[in-house]
Nucleic acid binder design. Structure first.
Lengths: 233, 233
DNA sequence: CGCCAGGTTGATTTCGCTCAAGCAATGTGG
DNA sequence: CCACATTGCTTGAGCGAAATCAACCTGGCG
């Protein structure tokens, strides 16, 4: 059972690999499973290679000396972790922690550089991928800098919809929040209590229905509208 | 007088170009000067190519429908603007505005793709560059999400030191803040009044001396210490 | 000159944080 | 099987940092 299955590969930058290179990849790769809560690498560590996420959910978290903490990125199935420090030739600047049980394939830096040298197209696809990641980071930077907690929460629910949303036959949307309130808070630069209150506010306004970690949204348009036109118009 | 002078080129990703490619670049490039305040491209515009900054200072600003606004990146001499949308194949997601009079060279997307195809090393250097930009964006994301206005201002002064700081023979550091209070505020996700007050607080604590847009710092260590050990320890 | 953008300061309000209590769900050991 | 920790979540009360609103100063500049 190869780690880099065709089904996942074709949706990622690894699609650029030739059969020979896929073979090299599969010979060099080391796969293992990680339970939720496990740490994959720690901020400050040298970057030994890439982590390809076959399944699960991982958060990249930054912490400073005073214990202030924020989640700067989420990585889903098909995503790759560690490419930023590998390509920037830096140490890890965040700690990667498993949020939902994961299967992760590690590929060492030397193999990675060999692949990048032998296959320019792989580099181009990474370039495209990292350019999109930069766009998302700048988008979140704008949100945290300029928007209220309530608005940021709505943005987050809409974001999580991509991977954790399902729509029933009658058009109702369910989003399963994949993490604790604490982690949701760290995603948007807030406190867990503020997240609770903001979620309740939004619920009281009839925009969503919350039970545990499941959000039910009847009219997604009303949520999206608030993002575009602001409150109470 | 070629736009891509050797002095600037060698410090940037354009160092990868062969003499032939430099020739192509110089034939295709269109250079002009922009006074402060001028807009280079607007968020939402399709990305027509790259803007290489020969001199000056440019801010990438995001604005939403309600007028909320934040500066998500600064671009200095030698930096390139527009590579993110070009590589991610997206429209511009920010507006580029000249902060300090600039000389900027435009290179069209077709030429750029031709260069990227002919020279894989150029792609690798862009990869390295954009990986660093992502690191900086995530760093600022963390700061805005987790730190106080006062701390963010100190981070900003330390950041601006790289390009706008000079140290006199007696070790005193002068940093020339290159923009208005309003723009400083938009850099850190705050209001101009809050920036004024935070600067005054820091001054009252004897950490810096402020006159107009010039910051004098006698003991840079004390500023850096506050960043690492927090306040009043 | 008068005007205006940039900047500071003050008064007041608001949003979100801190601290603290309480509750439900889950786990653990006797 | 039950007493009890533990963890995640919510809610409340009070507080504080920063936003808002507004006045006023300053130095260009037409």
């Amino acid at each position: 059972m190869p780690c880099l299955s065709a089904r996942i590969r074709t949706k990622t930058e690894w699609d650029a690999l030739t059969p020979d290179e896929i073979d090299l990849f599969n010979r060099k790769v080391v796969c293992r499973t990680y339970p939720a809560g496990q740490v994959i690498f720690v901020q400050g560590d040298p970057c030994k290679g890439l982590y390809f996420i076959e399944d699960g959910l991982i958060a990249a978290r930054k912490v400073d000396e005073e214990g202030q903490s924020a989640i700067v990125r989420l990585a889903y199935q098909g995503d790759t972790l560690g490419y930023r420090p590998l390509l920037a030739k830096e140490n890890h600047r965040a700690t990667a922690e498993v949020i939902k049980d994961a299967k992760i394939c590690f590929i060492g830096a030397p193999t990675m550089h060999r692949l990048l040298r032998s296959n320019p197209r792989l580099g181009m696809l990474f370039l495209e991928h990292i350019a999109q990641a930069l766009g998302e980071a700048e988008e979140r930077l704008f949100q945290v800098a300029a928007l209220s907690v309530r608005t940021r929460i709505i943005h987050l629910v809409v974001l999580l919809r991509d991977h954790y949303g399902t729509t029933t036959s009658d058009g109702t949307l369910f989003v399963e929040l994949p993490m604790t309130r604490r982690d949701l808070a760290e995603m948007i630069g807030a406190r867990p209590e503020s997240v609770s209150r903001a979620l309740r506010d939004i619920q009281d306004d009839g925009l969503m229905d919350l039970s545990g970690r499941t959000v039910r949204v009847d009219q997604i348009d009303r949520l999206i509208d608030e993002l575009h036109h602001g409150l109470h118009i």
